[in-house]
Write a protein that binds this DNA or RNA. Structure first.
Lengths: 200, 200
DNA sequence: ATTTTTGCAATACAGTTGTTTGATAAAGGC
DNA sequence: GCCTTTATCAAACAACTGTATTGCAAAAAT
């Protein structure tokens, strides 16, 4: 398919291969060759659409992170009350769907810790995530002091990240119902359960 | 220093170099050469004390994880009440000390997700961690049903792991007092603060 | 004092890495 | 229909990887 090729489309196609490889073999197994083999194209294609591997990795992380927000935005349109917080958390923590993204998240964290550009990406995404959560939690907890609310937002984010790790490592031990129960417990402790919201 | 050499001692010396390199350059920057240069010895030493790099990495993770428990055990000897839970959480989350271990934790998670032996290590350590927490939390929350307590233990572990990530990525934004305040809030929500314990 | 043993350095080795280059072919524009 | 553009492949490149090998010197053992 030479000439007319949608570059963005092709890039996301490559990203799909990257995600799959990282999910299966980790970041150390994600080489130019394994990725291109997974995608069914030669290694030259990657060189054609990305200036180098770092840019490719950055694009992949950006894409996956944005995809999470796109899912959240879509589901938020028809959600209300505490359910809105649950949507924000559920789309980050793997409960049934998008398991392959957890491997990407772990790789993202490890690499971002040692790469300024990736860390900037991390901060951008997490700032947005916190804004989502603070907005919804403020609506459910109108009487909570701002600083306390901020800490609870931080804890919600931390708990979600931590549960992602737990479920990734001990997937067999935590079935879907268990995962939801833990998320329920979290929301209850944060004062975001239906009953808690009514009481407040 | 040929002949009489304490092998365990020498191995931990190598581990120190590994931790330093991982903390500074990440797992991708931790090669046999960078590690041996950091440690001030030749690459032959590594081959002499470990059968291969995988075993070396495994030993390093094991060592660091055990070091955390050793710190916890030491501090638990002179701690009582909710403070005991705080000790268990504080020695995992970086608050001032042992910052270099956070990079090791992130590397551990990413690698363990794709390596059976490392994942077994992870499960061992986390099982022990959960036992510590469950014991202390049971004492503070005697009336809590077992399944609820289990979920709260899971959430405590998850929150600690997540906060580790938060503080690693946004170290500048979270000062020591902020980190302690968030940990306080967590313990409060879990019903483990001094007041909550008295009320229960 | 001589002989082992062993900790360590240095180097060699084969395989893999990200990247570059040259060739090929397909689809525009004119 | 010709010419330019470009998407793709295949191969080659130098650099780096983990590991194996060789040599040597220092300390026990006898």
């Amino acid at each position: 398919m030479p000439k007319i090729v949608d570059h963005d489309e092709r890039r996301t196609e490559i990203v799909r291969a990257i995600v799959k490889v990282i999910a299966e073999a980790g970041v150390s197994g994600a080489t130019v060759r394994t990725i291109s083999r997974e995608g069914g194209f030669s290694s030259g294609v990657i060189a054609h659409y990305f200036s180098n591997k770092d840019e490719m990795i950055r694009f992949a992380f950006e894409f996956v992170a944005d995809r999470v927000f796109r899912r959240i935005d879509a589901r938020l349109k028809q959600a209300s009350g505490p359910e809105r917080v649950r949507v924000i958390l559920e789309e980050h923590v793997p409960i049934g769907k998008h398991d392959d993204e957890t491997a990407v998240a772990l790789a993202f964290w490890e690499m971002a810790l040692h790469d300024d550009a990736l860390r900037a990406q991390f901060r951008d995404k997490y700032r947005r995530w916190r804004e989502y959560l603070r907005l919804e939690m403020r609506a459910l907890l109108p009487a909570t002091p701002p600083d306390v609310l901020d800490r609870r937002v931080d804890l919600a984010v931390a708990a979600a990240d931590g549960l992602l790790i737990t479920f990734a490592m001990e997937g067999k031990r935590y079935r879907q119902v268990d995962r939801r129960a833990i998320l329920d417990e979290l929301m209850g402790l944060l004062g975001l359960s239906d009953r808690a919201a009514e009481a407040a």
